[in-house]
Write a protein that binds this DNA or RNA. Structure first.
Lengths: 160, 160
DNA sequence: CCGAAGTAGGACTGAATTGGTACTGTTTCC
DNA sequence: GGAAACAGTACCAATTCAGTCCTACTTCGG
């Protein structure tokens, strides 16, 4: 159902929690408690995020995880990219010739467009937006999103 | 990878082919040949689309499938909905309390926003767009898309 | 009336993906 | 040197996906 995996879901949630209490380290155990996700799972996800450079990890007894970059700098798309792999809504749109129809397939280009739109939607929302208590603080971000789509339009004639 | 299933992919392709040759019936066999998808698979997908009312089916020896509505009237979102189930990018955003965090989860509302954006992207493209030979004929549709996102913005202040 | 060509509707299977756990290091602090 | 944290990897159970197959049922044409 065009669903992203639970891992990604967890990842965003965890990052959001971390972003809400910046400046200090968070241990996997602590995060597991506050999110009610199993500790093993939390570790797994945090590790991936750390490998991807979204989190900094500190080894040792006083260790833990903290954001590697300011929350405003991290887009949801990046997080999804890390935990979900590259975003490609169809085999067509992943770019490498995995689709045997490639080239002659009439819908290819249009899938790509849809793909970009989704990309844009995810890119427009940052971790800071996510961590904000108030639901829709996307004013700025949505502007960005609009701009992105506008740029793809090119001509403005509503031709059929 | 935020990927829709192959069924959906097939479905859109098949509908596109049907939409490109309107006015006549298409048998599963014929479509299988022209798309190089196995006939069994084609039948399966067409059946689902017919059940959902996107295709009209004609039984009997001269039977086949044809569009139930004009191609401009069918959005990609509908097709995806039929073949993929309701679009919900996270468990959070499907509405029924499958997420134990529901209510207290800080990211819930924002996921919903992202979800809507994706919805919008899929809704903005019709079967007619897909069937059009020229890749990006989305001028009109993308305008719709922009409008949708604009309406969600509400205030225009770029507040953090 | 009968057969061919089509759809309708299942059941079924093998493979891949996901979600989750367990275990064994390694690093750092005290 | 031991405890508490991360690091890495292997593993398993469950689900989902992709695809096939089989048996109706319906219609057209002779």
């Amino acid at each position: 159902m065009i669903r992203l995996t639970r891992q990604t879901d967890y990842g965003v949630l965890l990052l959001t929690v971390i972003a809400s209490h910046p400046g200090r380290g968070h241990t996997a155990r602590e995060l597991a408690e506050s999110t009610r996700i199993s500790q093993a799972m939390v570790s797994k996800v945090l590790k991936l995020l750390a490998q991807a450079g979204l989190l900094q990890s500190q080894l040792g007894v006083k260790g833990g995880y903290s954001l590697a970059r300011p929350a405003e700098d991290v887009t949801v798309r990046e997080i999804v990219d890390v935990l979900e792999g590259p975003i490609a809504i169809t085999v067509c749109s992943d770019g490498n010739g995995s689709c045997e129809q490639e080239g002659r397939c009439p819908v290819e280009a249009n899938w790509r467009t849809i793909n970009q739109a989704i990309h844009g939607a995810l890119e427009a929302i940052t971790l800071a937006d996510m961590a904000a208590p108030c639901p829709v603080t996307l004013s700025g971000s949505v502007a960005k999103l609009g701009a992105l789509q506008g740029s793809r339009t090119g001509a403005t004639e509503p031709s059929a």
